[in-house]
Protein backbone atom coordinates (compact mmCIF):
# COMPACT_ATOMS: atom_id res chain seq x y z
CA UNK A 1 0.00 0.00 0.00
CA UNK A 2 1.15 3.49 -0.67
CA UNK A 3 0.05 7.07 -0.91
CA UNK A 4 -0.32 8.87 -4.23
CA UNK A 5 0.66 12.45 -4.75
CA UNK A 6 -0.02 14.73 -7.67
CA UNK A 7 1.92 17.97 -7.70
CA UNK A 8 0.92 20.57 -10.24
CA UNK A 9 0.23 17.88 -12.83
CA UNK A 10 -0.64 19.21 -16.28
CA UNK A 11 -1.56 17.43 -19.44
CA UNK A 12 -1.76 18.97 -22.86
CA UNK A 13 -2.64 16.46 -25.58
CA UNK A 14 -0.71 16.63 -28.86
CA UNK A 15 -3.74 18.24 -30.50
CA UNK A 16 -3.45 21.13 -28.05
CA UNK A 17 -6.32 20.13 -25.83
CA UNK A 18 -5.51 20.83 -22.16
CA UNK A 19 -7.08 18.02 -20.13
CA UNK A 20 -5.43 18.67 -16.76
CA UNK A 21 -4.41 22.08 -15.50
CA UNK A 22 -2.18 21.91 -12.47
CA UNK A 23 -3.73 19.14 -10.40
CA UNK A 24 -2.64 19.07 -6.75
CA UNK A 25 -3.95 16.05 -4.95
CA UNK A 26 -2.66 14.07 -2.02
CA UNK A 27 -4.20 10.65 -1.62
CA UNK A 28 -3.31 9.07 1.68
CA UNK A 29 -2.31 5.45 2.17
CA UNK A 30 -5.46 3.35 2.34
CA UNK A 31 -7.74 6.14 1.23
CA UNK A 32 -10.65 5.65 -1.19
CA UNK A 33 -10.41 8.75 -3.38
CA UNK A 34 -13.12 9.37 -5.94
CA UNK A 35 -12.58 11.66 -8.90
CA UNK A 36 -15.92 12.90 -10.13
CA UNK A 37 -17.04 15.39 -12.74
CA UNK A 38 -19.01 15.72 -15.94
CA UNK A 39 -17.99 13.93 -19.10
CA UNK A 40 -14.81 15.23 -20.68
CA UNK A 41 -13.56 17.04 -17.59
CA UNK A 42 -10.30 15.08 -17.52
CA UNK A 43 -10.93 12.40 -14.90
CA UNK A 44 -9.72 9.54 -17.05
CA UNK A 45 -6.73 11.57 -18.11
CA UNK A 46 -5.77 12.12 -14.48
CA UNK A 47 -6.17 8.43 -13.71
CA UNK A 48 -4.21 7.37 -16.77
CA UNK A 49 -1.37 9.63 -15.74
CA UNK A 50 -1.28 7.93 -12.34
CA UNK A 51 -1.22 4.60 -14.18
CA UNK A 52 1.57 5.76 -16.49
CA UNK A 53 -0.51 5.32 -19.63
CA UNK A 54 -0.20 9.04 -20.34
CA UNK A 55 2.83 11.14 -19.53
CA UNK A 56 2.14 14.46 -17.81
CA UNK A 57 3.37 17.51 -19.68
CA UNK A 58 4.11 19.21 -16.35
CA UNK A 59 4.31 18.52 -12.62
CA UNK A 60 5.20 15.38 -10.67
CA UNK A 61 3.50 12.19 -9.60
CA UNK A 62 4.65 10.21 -6.59
CA UNK A 63 3.58 6.76 -5.49
CA UNK A 64 4.79 6.28 -1.95
CA UNK A 65 8.06 8.18 -1.86
CA UNK A 66 8.99 7.33 -5.40
CA UNK A 67 8.75 9.85 -8.21
CA UNK A 68 7.07 7.87 -10.99
CA UNK A 69 6.32 10.75 -13.36
CA UNK A 70 8.10 9.09 -16.27
CA UNK A 71 8.12 5.47 -15.04
CA UNK A 72 6.33 3.11 -17.46
CA UNK A 73 3.14 1.46 -16.15
CA UNK A 74 4.61 -2.01 -15.78
CA UNK A 75 7.09 -0.74 -13.19
CA UNK A 76 4.59 1.15 -11.05
CA UNK A 77 3.01 -1.79 -9.23
CA UNK A 78 -0.53 -0.60 -9.74
CA UNK A 79 -3.65 -2.35 -10.93
CA UNK A 80 -6.33 -0.82 -13.05
CA UNK A 81 -9.92 -1.75 -13.85
CA UNK A 82 -11.05 -0.29 -17.14
CA UNK A 83 -14.52 0.87 -18.01
CA UNK A 84 -14.67 -1.72 -20.79
CA UNK A 85 -12.89 -4.20 -18.47
CA UNK A 86 -10.29 -4.93 -21.18
CA UNK A 87 -10.35 -8.65 -20.47
CA UNK A 88 -8.04 -10.59 -22.77
CA UNK A 89 -10.55 -12.23 -25.09
CA UNK A 90 -8.27 -15.09 -26.10
CA UNK A 91 -7.57 -16.21 -22.53
CA UNK A 92 -9.80 -18.05 -20.07
CA UNK A 93 -10.85 -16.41 -16.86
CA UNK A 94 -8.12 -18.33 -15.09
CA UNK A 95 -5.48 -17.08 -17.53
CA UNK A 96 -6.82 -13.56 -17.29
CA UNK A 97 -6.47 -13.63 -13.54
CA UNK A 98 -3.01 -15.17 -13.73
CA UNK A 99 -1.63 -12.84 -16.39
CA UNK A 100 -0.33 -10.12 -14.07
CA UNK A 101 1.29 -12.63 -11.74
CA UNK A 102 2.86 -14.43 -14.69
CA UNK A 103 4.30 -11.16 -16.01
CA UNK A 104 5.85 -10.56 -12.64
CA UNK A 105 7.42 -13.97 -12.61
CA UNK A 106 5.42 -15.49 -9.76
CA UNK A 107 5.85 -19.21 -9.22
CA UNK A 108 3.29 -21.63 -10.55
CA UNK A 109 2.16 -22.64 -7.09
CA UNK A 110 1.76 -19.06 -5.99
CA UNK A 111 -0.25 -18.18 -9.09
CA UNK A 112 -2.53 -21.12 -8.51
CA UNK A 113 -3.09 -20.25 -4.90
CA UNK A 114 -3.77 -16.56 -5.45
CA UNK A 115 -6.01 -17.10 -8.44
CA UNK A 116 -7.94 -19.65 -6.42
CA UNK A 117 -8.40 -17.22 -3.54
CA UNK A 118 -9.57 -14.39 -5.77
CA UNK A 119 -11.93 -16.67 -7.66
CA UNK A 120 -13.44 -17.84 -4.39
CA UNK A 121 -13.82 -14.32 -3.05
CA UNK A 122 -15.55 -13.16 -6.22
CA UNK A 123 -17.62 -16.31 -6.83
CA UNK A 124 -15.83 -16.94 -10.11
CA UNK A 125 -14.87 -20.56 -9.46
CA UNK A 126 -17.55 -22.09 -11.72
CA UNK A 127 -16.49 -19.99 -14.72
CA UNK A 128 -12.69 -20.22 -14.38
CA UNK A 129 -12.27 -22.09 -17.64
CA UNK A 130 -14.56 -19.95 -19.76
CA UNK A 131 -13.52 -17.22 -22.12
CA UNK A 132 -14.73 -13.66 -21.43
CA UNK A 133 -17.20 -13.81 -24.32
CA UNK A 134 -19.09 -16.55 -22.47
CA UNK A 135 -19.64 -14.48 -19.33
CA UNK A 136 -22.44 -12.18 -18.22
CA UNK A 137 -21.74 -8.49 -17.74
CA UNK A 138 -21.58 -8.86 -13.99
CA UNK A 139 -19.17 -11.79 -14.21
CA UNK A 140 -16.90 -9.88 -16.57
CA UNK A 141 -16.85 -7.02 -14.16
CA UNK A 142 -15.83 -9.37 -11.37
CA UNK A 143 -13.07 -10.87 -13.51
CA UNK A 144 -11.72 -7.39 -14.12
CA UNK A 145 -11.85 -6.79 -10.41
CA UNK A 146 -10.21 -10.13 -9.70
CA UNK A 147 -7.40 -9.41 -12.12
CA UNK A 148 -6.62 -6.32 -10.07
CA UNK A 149 -6.95 -8.02 -6.68
CA UNK A 150 -4.71 -11.05 -7.26
CA UNK A 151 -1.78 -8.78 -7.84
CA UNK A 152 -1.99 -7.11 -4.43
CA UNK A 153 -0.66 -3.89 -5.92
CA UNK A 154 0.29 -0.67 -4.17
CA UNK A 155 -2.61 1.25 -5.65
CA UNK A 156 -5.90 0.32 -7.32
CA UNK A 157 -7.19 2.48 -10.13
CA UNK A 158 -10.78 2.25 -11.31
CA UNK A 159 -12.14 3.99 -14.38
CA UNK A 160 -15.94 3.95 -14.22
CA UNK A 161 -15.99 0.23 -13.48
CA UNK A 162 -19.74 0.10 -12.84
CA UNK A 163 -21.05 2.10 -15.77
CA UNK A 164 -21.68 -0.97 -17.92
CA UNK A 165 -23.83 -2.73 -15.34
CA UNK A 166 -27.59 -2.48 -14.96
CA UNK A 167 -28.96 -0.34 -12.12
CA UNK A 168 -29.54 -3.15 -9.64
CA UNK A 169 -26.18 -4.83 -10.17
CA UNK A 170 -24.49 -1.47 -9.92
CA UNK A 171 -25.85 -0.85 -6.43
CA UNK A 172 -24.88 -4.36 -5.31
CA UNK A 173 -21.38 -4.09 -6.74
CA UNK A 174 -21.01 -0.70 -5.14
CA UNK A 175 -21.53 -2.23 -1.74
CA UNK A 176 -19.16 -5.03 -2.72
CA UNK A 177 -16.47 -2.49 -3.55
CA UNK A 178 -16.92 -0.70 -0.24
CA UNK A 179 -16.54 -4.03 1.57
CA UNK A 180 -13.49 -4.87 -0.49
CA UNK A 181 -11.86 -1.60 0.39
CA UNK A 182 -12.43 -2.19 4.06
CA UNK A 183 -11.05 -5.72 3.88
CA UNK A 184 -7.94 -4.88 1.86
CA UNK A 185 -7.31 -1.45 3.33
CA UNK A 186 -6.03 -0.56 -0.09
CA UNK A 187 -5.36 2.81 -1.65
CA UNK A 188 -7.98 3.32 -4.33
CA UNK A 189 -8.42 6.03 -6.93
CA UNK A 190 -11.83 5.73 -8.46
CA UNK A 191 -13.22 7.68 -11.40
CA UNK A 192 -16.91 8.16 -12.02
CA UNK A 193 -19.26 10.74 -13.45
CA UNK A 194 -22.03 9.66 -11.12
CA UNK A 195 -22.16 11.87 -8.06
CA UNK A 196 -24.19 9.35 -6.11
CA UNK A 197 -21.54 6.68 -6.64
CA UNK A 198 -18.90 9.21 -5.62
CA UNK A 199 -20.72 10.16 -2.41
CA UNK A 200 -21.45 6.60 -1.31
CA UNK A 201 -17.98 5.19 -2.01
CA UNK A 202 -15.42 7.88 -1.38
CA UNK A 203 -13.50 8.53 1.81
CA UNK A 204 -12.92 11.80 0.02
CA UNK A 205 -14.27 13.10 -3.25
CA UNK A 206 -12.43 15.30 -5.72
CA UNK A 207 -14.70 17.25 -8.05
CA UNK A 208 -13.22 18.16 -11.43
CA UNK A 209 -14.31 20.49 -14.18
CA UNK A 210 -12.54 21.35 -17.43
CA UNK A 211 -9.22 20.00 -16.16
CA UNK A 212 -9.35 21.91 -12.87
CA UNK A 213 -9.93 20.48 -9.41
CA UNK A 214 -12.90 22.29 -7.88
CA UNK A 215 -12.96 20.89 -4.39
CA UNK A 216 -11.54 17.92 -2.52
CA UNK A 217 -13.42 16.95 0.63
CA UNK A 218 -15.23 14.12 2.42
CA UNK A 219 -18.68 13.52 0.92
CA UNK A 220 -20.75 15.19 3.60
CA UNK A 221 -18.57 18.26 3.65
CA UNK A 222 -18.94 18.50 -0.09
CA UNK A 223 -22.68 18.33 0.31
CA UNK A 224 -22.95 20.80 3.15
CA UNK A 225 -20.28 23.28 2.18
CA UNK A 226 -19.78 23.23 -1.57
CA UNK A 227 -16.87 25.49 -2.44
CA UNK A 228 -18.58 26.96 -5.47
CA UNK A 229 -21.74 26.99 -7.50
CA UNK A 230 -20.50 24.23 -9.82
CA UNK A 231 -19.87 21.78 -6.97
CA UNK A 232 -23.15 22.75 -5.34
CA UNK A 233 -25.05 21.99 -8.51
CA UNK A 234 -23.14 18.81 -9.31
CA UNK A 235 -23.46 17.18 -5.89
CA UNK A 236 -26.83 16.12 -4.52
CA UNK A 237 -29.98 14.97 -6.24
CA UNK A 238 -32.33 16.51 -7.17
CA UNK A 239 -29.94 19.35 -7.98
CA UNK A 240 -29.77 22.50 -5.88
CA UNK A 241 -32.05 25.44 -6.78
CA UNK A 242 -30.42 28.75 -7.68
CA UNK A 243 -32.27 32.02 -7.29
CA UNK A 244 -31.33 35.65 -7.74
CA UNK A 245 -30.03 37.03 -4.44
CA UNK A 246 -32.68 39.80 -4.28
CA UNK A 247 -35.47 37.32 -3.66
CA UNK A 248 -34.41 36.84 -0.03
CA UNK A 249 -32.43 40.05 0.17
CA UNK A 250 -32.82 40.40 3.95
CA UNK A 251 -30.91 37.14 4.52
CA UNK A 252 -28.06 37.88 2.13
CA UNK A 253 -24.64 38.16 3.78
CA UNK A 254 -23.31 40.47 1.05
CA UNK A 255 -24.63 42.82 -1.59
CA UNK A 256 -27.73 40.89 -2.72
CA UNK A 257 -27.40 42.29 -6.25
CA UNK A 258 -24.21 40.32 -6.90
CA UNK A 259 -25.10 37.13 -5.04
CA UNK A 260 -26.79 33.92 -6.04
CA UNK A 261 -28.84 32.03 -3.50
CA UNK A 262 -28.57 28.25 -3.54
CA UNK A 263 -31.00 26.03 -1.68
CA UNK A 264 -31.42 22.27 -1.89
CA UNK A 265 -34.87 20.87 -2.63
CA UNK A 266 -34.70 19.01 0.69
CA UNK A 267 -34.20 22.28 2.58
CA UNK A 268 -37.48 23.80 1.44
CA UNK A 269 -40.86 23.20 3.10
CA UNK A 270 -44.26 23.63 1.51
CA UNK A 271 -46.76 25.48 3.73
CA UNK A 272 -50.11 27.16 3.17
CA UNK A 273 -50.15 30.24 0.98
CA UNK A 274 -48.90 33.34 2.76
CA UNK A 275 -47.40 31.37 5.68
CA UNK A 276 -43.95 30.90 4.17
CA UNK A 277 -41.16 33.17 3.00
CA UNK A 278 -42.56 33.35 -0.53
CA UNK A 279 -45.65 32.27 -2.43
CA UNK A 280 -45.50 30.03 -5.49
CA UNK A 281 -47.72 28.29 -8.01
CA UNK A 282 -47.55 24.48 -8.14
CA UNK A 283 -46.52 23.38 -11.62
CA UNK A 284 -45.96 19.61 -11.56
CA UNK A 285 -46.06 17.03 -8.79
CA UNK A 286 -43.97 13.87 -9.19
CA UNK A 287 -44.67 11.16 -6.62
CA UNK A 288 -41.50 9.18 -5.94
CA UNK A 289 -42.78 6.72 -3.40
CA UNK A 290 -40.97 7.83 -0.27
CA UNK A 291 -41.34 11.49 -1.15
CA UNK A 292 -42.84 13.98 -3.57
CA UNK A 293 -40.83 16.09 -5.95
CA UNK A 294 -42.74 19.31 -6.50
CA UNK A 295 -41.94 21.81 -9.21
CA UNK A 296 -43.01 25.32 -8.28
CA UNK A 297 -42.97 28.66 -10.02
CA UNK A 298 -42.39 31.59 -7.71
CA UNK A 299 -45.00 34.30 -7.44
CA UNK A 300 -48.76 33.88 -7.06
CA UNK A 301 -49.14 34.12 -10.86
CA UNK A 302 -46.31 31.64 -11.36
CA UNK A 303 -44.19 33.91 -13.53
CA UNK A 304 -41.06 33.76 -11.36
CA UNK A 305 -38.14 31.31 -11.50
CA UNK A 306 -38.62 27.57 -11.06
CA UNK A 307 -38.06 25.92 -7.71
CA UNK A 308 -37.77 22.19 -6.96
CA UNK A 309 -38.97 21.04 -3.57
CA UNK A 310 -38.82 17.60 -1.97
CA UNK A 311 -41.82 17.15 0.29
CA UNK A 312 -43.11 14.32 2.52
CA UNK A 313 -45.50 12.06 0.63
CA UNK A 314 -48.50 13.11 2.70
CA UNK A 315 -48.15 16.80 1.77
CA UNK A 316 -51.37 18.10 0.19
CA UNK A 317 -50.34 19.72 -3.06
CA UNK A 318 -52.09 19.90 -6.39
CA UNK A 319 -51.09 21.42 -9.68
CA UNK A 320 -52.18 25.05 -10.25
CA UNK A 321 -52.70 25.77 -6.53
CA UNK A 322 -50.86 28.60 -4.80
CA UNK A 323 -48.75 27.49 -1.83
CA UNK A 324 -46.16 29.04 0.44
CA UNK A 325 -42.48 27.96 0.64
CA UNK A 326 -40.33 28.18 3.72
CA UNK A 327 -36.52 28.27 3.43
CA UNK A 328 -34.37 26.49 6.03
CA UNK A 329 -32.30 29.42 7.30
CA UNK A 330 -29.44 27.16 8.40
CA UNK A 331 -29.03 25.60 5.00
CA UNK A 332 -28.78 28.49 2.61
CA UNK A 333 -25.78 28.79 0.29
CA UNK A 334 -24.61 32.08 -1.13
CA UNK A 335 -22.40 32.34 -4.18
CA UNK A 336 -20.71 35.24 -5.88
CA UNK A 337 -22.47 35.85 -9.16
CA UNK A 338 -19.24 36.60 -11.02
CA UNK A 339 -16.86 33.97 -9.73
CA UNK A 340 -19.35 31.37 -8.51
CA UNK A 341 -17.39 31.14 -5.26
CA UNK A 342 -19.06 30.53 -1.97
CA UNK A 343 -19.42 33.68 0.14
Amino acid sequence: MASVQLEGVRKTYPNGHVAAQGLDLHIADGEFMVLVGPSGCGKSTALRMIAGLETPTGGRILIGDRDVTVVPPQQRDIAMVFQTYALYPHMTVRENLAFGLRMRGASRAEIEQRVGEAARALALEPVLDRKPAQLSGGQRQRVALGRAIVREPKVFLFDEPLSNLDAKLRVETRAELARLHRRLGATIVYVTHDQEEAMTLGSRVAVMRDGFLQQVAPPMELYRYPANKFVAEFVGSPAMNFLPGEILAELSPANPGTAVLGVRPHDLTIVTAGAGDLDALVDVVEPRGSELLVYLRLGAEGNGPELRVVAPPETAVEADRVVGVRFDRERLHWFDEETGRRV
Binding site: G52, P73, A86, Y88, M103
Partner: peptide, 10 residues
Amino acid sequence: ELEEAAMVDG
Protein backbone atom coordinates in the same frame (compact mmCIF):
# COMPACT_ATOMS: atom_id res chain seq x y z
CA GLU B 1 -7.12 -0.74 -23.60
CA LEU B 2 -6.12 -4.37 -24.01
CA GLU B 3 -2.45 -3.67 -24.24
CA GLU B 4 -2.76 -0.89 -21.70
CA ALA B 5 -4.22 -3.45 -19.33
CA ALA B 6 -1.33 -5.77 -20.14
CA MET B 7 1.20 -3.04 -19.44
CA VAL B 8 -0.45 -2.14 -16.15
CA ASP B 9 -0.35 -5.87 -15.39
CA GLY B 10 3.40 -5.70 -15.71
